[in-house]
């Protein structure tokens, strides 16, 4: 202890304290302050950059989710549109079919009516012709018979009466 005390030099202590305090002050102003600030700024920058990256990632995920949703919606819409189209097509086809059927039926009916009326007309025509023919034949026959026999005339009359009843 005594050796320590005798080794102690007041002058050196004073110099040491003064120089150290000056050094501390200078370093604080020109070195540690700027260094620590720079390091802090850098760390702050890194932290904010990381946060920004995280945000961007989240944003990206949102965008992806959005686009996926949009895609899904579009797909669903297309699906429904296709379905609708199919339905419309089917409806149109069936409508057309129905219409065609109705039209066809109508035409068939008309045709039938026409045929019927034609047939009637034809029958009537035939009847007329037959009647004319018969009349002509009968005329010829009558002309023959009348000249010969009164009784035969009576017979034609009865025959004609039969024909009229059949018609």
């Amino acid at each position: 202890m005594e050796k320590l005390l005798s080794d102690f030099s007041l002058g050196l202590f004073v110099w040491m304290t003064v120089l150290f305090l000056i050094l501390l002050g200078l370093l604080r102003k020109f070195a540690w302050g700027p260094i620590l600030n720079a390091v802090n700024d850098r760390e702050e920058g890194i932290r904010s950059a990381l946060a920004a990256a995280e945000d961007a990632k989240r944003e990206m995920q949102n965008v992806t989710a959005d686009s996926e949703r949009l895609l899904k919606e579009a797909r669903a819409e297309r699906e429904s549109m296709l379905k609708e189209a199919r339905e419309i097509k089917e409806k149109i086809v069936s409508d057309a079919r129905d219409l065609a059927k109705v039209e066809g039926d109508k035409m068939i009916k008309q045709a039938q009516l026409t045929i019927e009326s034609e047939k009637k007309a034809a029958v009537a025509d035939i009847k007329n012709q037959v009647a004319e023919l018969s009349v002509a034949i009968a005329e010829k026959v009558l002309k023959e018979k009348l000249s010969e026999n009164k009784k035969q005339l009576e017979l034609v009359d009865s025959l004609l009466g039969d024909i009229k009843m059949n018609a």
Binding site: I22, L23, L26, L27, F30, A31, P34, I35
Partner: peptide
């Protein structure tokens, strides 16, 4: 002291 001062003020400048 001068050495430390020179070293670390250079470090500070190199940051800038």
């Amino acid at each position: 002291g001068l050495l430390i001062l020179w070293m670390f003020s250079s470090l500070a400048r190199s940051y800038a």
